[in-house]
Design a protein around this nucleic acid. Structure first.
Lengths: 137, 137
DNA sequence: ACCCTCATGCAACTCAGTTGCAAAAGTGTT
DNA sequence: AACACTTTTGCAACTGAGTTGCATGAGGGT
């Protein structure tokens, strides 16, 4: 994905593409995996954490990213290419490496579906495998 | 599960069953679902949060509970009946209600397995469905 | 009763994340 | 270009969950 594409994506979601926002969105493209706020903070020293916090909230509100539970604690943010304005979906499984703490998208592996008991109404599904990633084995 | 069983379980895992610890373990039995630290704090006003924190760490260390990512943020602790001393497993799916914030065990639904790409080494799996629980629909 | 170890309760601390606010950067109008 | 207006930014202060330090207290063994 090019920088121009990111700007298009932002505009399309009603987000004004400021310099900081482009940096943050680029971080997702570059790493190609879900990032935590602190990971972004480390990667973009020049950007204040308050800006990161507010930007991620805005991105989320406008469905540019969605959140998923971190393998450890806290949450991670994932850029969604296929999210429409009112619906987040991009249902692949994730892998959390317990050594390096990174979360990877296994985009080729769709989440196997299950049938819920009567009364439960599904909104979204998260399938997370924890273990060692190729680099940490 | 009876209180005597809980005490047995603790002893079996090398945890001295003090009054506070029994209260905390009982909370899990009573609710029959994974609890967050703050949920326990609310339920057991008489027990200091430092005690809860240290107790949960101890329980975890001794494999009496294991953690799972909260549907929201943070983590929840789940009493494991079938965990041996060196291995936590109890692989059923969980349901997180986005309205009431509770997490439920769907014990009858095993987690469907997937084949990971070369190089990834699995340690544990978490399958979490988010949506509305029967009470909140 | 004594000693020793472990558990407890309170207060102080830590750290991630959020919020308040004034300065700065954009945007549009005349 | 100057103006008024809106949005974003950067800093500092705040917040709240969770943890840690430490003195007291309870339990267990001799």
């Amino acid at each position: 994905m090019q920088e121009t594409d990111i700007i298009d994506l932002m505009m399309h979601h009603g987000v004004k593409p400021t310099a900081n926002r482009i940096l943050i969105a680029n971080a997702f493209v570059k790493e190609h995996r879900p990032l935590s706020m602190s990971e972004i903070e480390v990667q973009l020293e020049s950007v204040d954490k308050s800006v990161i916090s507010r930007t991620l909230s805005l991105f989320r509100e406008r469905h540019l990213v969605h959140i998923l539970p971190d393998g450890g604690d806290g949450v991670r943010y994932e850029l969604c290419h296929r999210c429409s304005d009112d619906h987040d979906d991009d249902a692949h499984i994730h892998f959390y490496c317990s050594r390096c703490g990174k979360t990877f998208c296994l985009e080729d592996i769709p989440i196997p579906e299950v049938t819920l008991p009567q009364g439960y109404q599904e909104e979204s599904v998260n399938y997370m495998v924890t273990g060692l990633c190729p680099d940490c084995r």
